[in-house]
């Protein structure tokens, strides 16, 4: 394959920029009467001229309309599916008697942490205190947890394969990295509102927002974890004739698992943060309580709800973290003698 010389790229970019200038000028309502005027009247160099304005907003709005008309149904279907899952999962936990839920949490922590009693007792007490702070919080915490769990599930299902693809292919990584930057930097409200249009109010846009907000660290850590696996260990696998798939599932993934678990842990924490923000678009749950407290200038209520979120964060953090630590202990790098 012949390589395209750098100058061709420069020419293409310059051309695109020129085209954008012309389009901006032509589509502007406040452009001067003729192009010639620009050279006689130089006042436009003073303040940023009104006509030097890409019509990006108009394009996005037009595109958005077409997008909704064409693909709205797909999003309805996704939203409906998610809503079914969310409602049913929530119902199961809400209807279970609260002591059963606490015991379940304790049991999960006990086994995922490798039978550490300290962690388990601590998590049990934290879980109890969520309801103990305010009985109303118990069901709300379950709603929030369900959203977080569903959000993380989507992150894992989509994020880990993307992370693997990035680690295996330089080009994919170069393409995905800017998207991840965009996802992390763009303010949450920019996608909360389109979320409402696509999915309606409630839990679903919150879950989608969790995905956008919390997925990048998981993708990054998956990518990093796989690339950090000792090169000699990879060479060892290759020297025995391991195929790419055997290498990935037999060596790279197990050794990257502590990093991936860290990614899921990060994902969980960010998901909780997003649930609070999402309460602004009418998502119920603990975030809703914080918002309510603030709106009524009831400092006590807001802080009480805030504490409940912290407790929930501790519980989820301990449960995911403990599992990661358990794997890490076994996967200690080979001691150098």
């Amino acid at each position: 394959m012949k390589k395209i010389p750098q100058s061709v790229y420069y020419a293409i970019f310059t051309g695109l920029f020129g085209w954008l200038l012309v389009v901006s000028f032509n589509s502007s309502k406040r452009k001067p009467d003729s192009v010639g005027e620009l050279f006689t009247d130089l006042s436009w160099l003073n303040n940023w001229p009104k006509w030097l304005d890409t019509p990006l907003m108009k394009w996005i709005n037009d595109g958005w309309k077409v997008f909704i008309a064409e693909y709205g149904l797909i999003f309805d279907a996704i939203g409906y599916g998610l809503l079914r899952g969310y409602t049913e999962l929530k119902q199961i936990i809400v209807q279970a008697p609260w002591p059963v839920v606490i015991i379940a949490v304790i049991a999960i922590t006990y086994f995922s942490s490798g039978r550490k009693v300290g962690t388990t007792v601590f998590v049990g007490i934290c879980t109890f205190f969520i309801g103990f702070l305010n009985p109303r919080f118990w069901d709300k915490a379950i709603e929030t947890t369900t959203m977080v769990v569903l959000g993380i599930a989507i992150c894992v299902i989509i994020g880990i394969p993307i992370g693997i693809a990035m680690a295996r292919n330089e080009k994919v990584r170069n393409a995905i990295l800017p998207i991840l930057d965009l996802m992390q930097v763009i303010p949450a409200f920019c996608y909360l509102i389109p979320g409402i249009i696509l999915f309606g109010l409630g839990a679903i846009p919150a879950i989608i927002s969790i995905f956008i907000y919390a997925c990048p660290p998981l993708i990054r850590l998956t990518d990093l974890g796989i690339r950090l696996v000792d090169k000699e260990v990879i060479e060892a696998a290759e020297s025995f004739g391991a195929s790419r798939r055997q290498k990935l599932w037999g060596v790279q993934m197990p050794l990257a698992l502590p990093n991936i678990m860290q990614g899921i842990n990060q994902c969980t924490m960010m998901a909780l943060a997003m649930v609070v923000i999402a309460s602004m678009i009418g998502t119920r749950g603990l975030g809703d309580e914080v918002l309510l407290g603030l709106q009524q200038l009831n400092v006590g209520a807001a802080i009480e709800a805030g504490l409940a979120i912290v407790l929930l964060a501790i519980v989820l953090d301990r449960m995911t973290q403990a599992y990661g630590e358990k794997i890490q202990e076994r996967n200690q790098p080979v001691k150098k003698k």
């Binding site: 260990v233 060892a236 696998a237 020297s239 076994r330 996967n331």
Partner: peptide, 11 residues
Amino acid sequence: MVFQRFGLFPH
């Protein structure tokens, strides 16, 4: 192949 830093699979 045998490696300098052993290249064993720690898991």
